[in-house]
Design a binder for these strands. Structure first.
Lengths: 129, 129, 129, 129
DNA sequence: TTTT
DNA sequence: TTTT
């Protein structure tokens, strides 16, 4: 009924941009998200979270994100079941993102992209009634 | 750079639906959100948070939400400055919502509405590459 | 660097409460979280998200949560790698929760539990300076 | 029943650290949070959000945060009513934070502080059962 | 398989 | 009253 995840982390490598047979763009990448505490060996582990971006956001991701970039993403956690070659059921966890923000960039390039923000023309907030 | 708020609470009264001079729908309502602890008198206070929904979501809110309903909303916190009649500057805090979910409804009516979800036709997740 | 997930869903079965060899309580359960849209067959899928609660929160979960209950949880997404019996590496995604709220309960039982809230004695907000 | 806000922004000035009559530390500061879109004049507005940190986190904030720093904060939105000198009721919106993360720092100083994390000694995730 |  |  509600499923929202927010991550800040760095790309472990360049995203992969692919297209479905119907031509829908989809980008995938992995974020390294440092844990908030150190482990028993005194080191800071990270969670490596697979992320997916569809359509316009996918193209933006595929064309502008690169390995090592620090980003904030927002989306939902999706658990997908599938049957492996050995006949066993397995599950895959992915974050389907709908917003992405660059956190380490020069202000030149677009610093915020959302799934549909190309159509968002928000009226002034102080609209007089 | 990032501004996300998630609230679960009940409408203190029916929403007000208005239109800007340009005809853009905008609904406003207040959520009572119980605090997670009791106060010095052993009572549970609530925060009364003003919320605003624009456009299609505003119309949905204006037409389907009613006093007392339990909802989850998602949006951003906006702080708006203005000059009062007495010449003093004041500030207004509002949550501009982009998603709303009913939490106490029978499953009949639409249980989730988002700013642009009328156009979201998400491709199957297990698309084969 | 930042890892926050918020889910609302229903328990697919009663939680399991276990203890580490050192006696630390840990509860695990699965939440069914309806997706915000319907699939190609017009049905609403759900994500089945494994959740884990440690220590005091784990005990509360183990003793008070039951199958079918509607809850909101907050926590972080953890991706854990391990080597399976067949020698292959696999990964497990779990949400380590730090807060849990009942959303369908009569107000009798505790309606909000957090990792450390037994020690939270928040001073009045309107403390005069 | 649920109230969670996550902000990324920069301090507009150094925090103020005060103490209640009972000696409880409380720090206050304002975050400038850029809006995700440009206004009618093509400029990017910001929301100036007042934040409050109590106790240990308040002291950390008071001692380590400075004007211009980029941080992520997590907390709850609190709406406080009061009666002004002119007898009118007014409302104040503040974010009571429980976590703070530095986003622009050298890795030298502690990069993550939470309300109670000095007592969090999380057991290994892969504890064998 | 992993980022700074 | 506002940050980069």
């Amino acid at each position: 009924m509600f499923n929202k995840i927010i991550l800040i982390g760095r790309l472990t490598r360049d995203p992969e941009l692919r297209y479905t047979p119907q031509g829908v763009p989809v980008a995938s990448f992995t974020l390294a998200v440092d844990r908030p505490f150190t482990n028993a060996q005194g080191q800071r582990d990270a969670d490596f979270v697979d992320c997916v971006a569809w359509r316009k956001l996918g193209e933006t991701v595929g064309n502008h994100l690169t390995k090592g970039r620090l980003v904030a993403v927002e989306g939902r956690l999706q658990i997908r079941g599938y049957t492996a070659q050995d006949g066993n059921k397995r599950r895959v966890a992915e974050v389907i993102i709908d917003t992405l923000r660059f956190l380490d960039a020069p202000k030149s390039s677009p610093s915020s992209v959302a799934a549909h923000n190309h159509e968002v023309t928000i009226p002034p907030d102080d609209v007089p009634f």
